[in-house]
């Protein structure tokens, strides 16, 4: 299976490394032999139609960026290079969805299957992309866009099929969860913990999308569309971030048996993100950078998944899962 990787940041590098490391495992277990035929970043594109060797890929990961490649854009590579699956891993833009949106459209129009972690195109044009994938008979997977390593979307789509999903609630942003957890432990103000999180690489240099709840709202929009079958827009999510949460709030909550968590909720009637009082015994009361998602179901009542919501290696686990899933779907066509 020929693979094109568009976007070579931390996640792209982790994916290339893992595809190389797991070559034997994927072949033995699934009869799947992914061959990376192109890697694109903002500096250019490396293309090798027969597929790069493990050694070449290792060198590429060590260099950290595409060096000495062709001057081709992501769209050009996707349109012109022969391949079966495109990994779209460029940075998220929630306003326009670009450049990811154009990459995904180009891939589908040229008959290629798509795996993405990019929330931008999913928030901006989810229905359009789902319909285009059906029209062009290509597979479209985006497990890595929500929950990092936790298979939230595929779990809901594949394993909850006998249940009606009444609501999805989740702690979906590791950065804010780390900040709230540290504020609870140390009883210190938010700005001090944010600085600590930035030093540890847990928070971005500009963490506003996390702190204002926008990242969680994007994930709630994706879950509402992908799992609940809604046609939700990001602007419809009622949103409050954690910027106004003080140590006093956390202390008062704790004294009454609650943790304060940034919880996103999606149901047929509700789309919202905000700080919530979560009972300390509740499965959503996870600490540190962990994520947790609870499905409320008509038959099974409640099922909660917990795991690492971010990190290149962890998120690669979802990307790889999607690739195997596409391979199996194609085999059963």
């Amino acid at each position: 299976m020929k693979v094109i990787v568009v976007g070579f940041g931390n996640l792209g590098k982790a994916l290339v490394r893992i595809l190389s490391q797991k070559r034997d495992f994927l072949e033995r277990r699934y009869g799947l032999s992914p061959q990376i035929v192109a890697v694109v970043d903002e500096y250019g594109a490396l293309v090798k139609e027969g597929g790069f060797t493990a050694r070449e890929l290792q060198g590429l990961v060590e260099r950290g960026r595409v060096v000495g490649g062709k001057r081709m854009s992501g769209r050009e590579v996707i349109g012109e290079v022969e391949g079966e699956v495109v990994f779209e891993l460029t940075p998220t833009n929630i306003e326009t969805g670009e450049p990811g949106l154009s990459h995904i459209r180009e891939a589908m129009l040229s008959g290629k299957h798509v795996v993405t972690s990019n929330k931008g195109p999913l928030v901006v044009a989810f229905r359009e992309l789902e319909e285009l994938s059906k029209k062009r008979s290509v597979e479209f997977r985006y497990s890595a866009s929500v929950g990092g390593a936790i298979p939230v979307i595929s779990f809901a789509k594949k394993l909850l099929t006998g249940n009606r999903i009444l609501a999805i609630r989740g702690v979906l942003n590791g950065t804010t969860n780390y900040i709230l957890s540290r504020m609870s432990q140390e009883e210190v103000p938010l700005d001090i913990v944010v600085r600590e999180a930035q030093e540890l690489g847990i928070a971005e240099k500009d963490p506003s999308l996390d702190l204002e709840g926008v990242d969680t709202a994007c994930k709630i929009t994706i879950l509402a569309n992908a799992v609940l079958g809604r046609n939700a827009k990001l602007r419809e999510v009622k949103r409050e971030g954690i910027l106004r949460v003080t140590p006093e709030v956390i202390r008062l909550a704790h004294e009454a048996g609650f943790a304060v968590k940034l919880v996103g909720t999606a149901s047929d009637r509700l789309l919202e993100v905000g700080p919530r009082l979560v009972p300390l015994h509740h499965p959503l009361a996870v600490s540190g950078t962990l994520n947790a998602v609870t499905f409320e179901l008509d038959l099974a009542r409640e099922i909660t998944l917990t795991g690492f919501g971010a990190g290149p290696q962890e998120t690669s686990s979802s990307l790889l899962g999607d690739l195997v899933d596409i391979h199996q779907s194609l085999a059963s066509r």
Binding site: R169, E240, V245, V249, T265, R276, L277, L284
Partner: peptide, 10 residues
């Protein structure tokens, strides 16, 4: 003002 409600339980 910030209002923090309890998680709606099933």
């Amino acid at each position: 003002l910030l209002l923090v409600k309890a998680l709606e339980e099933r």
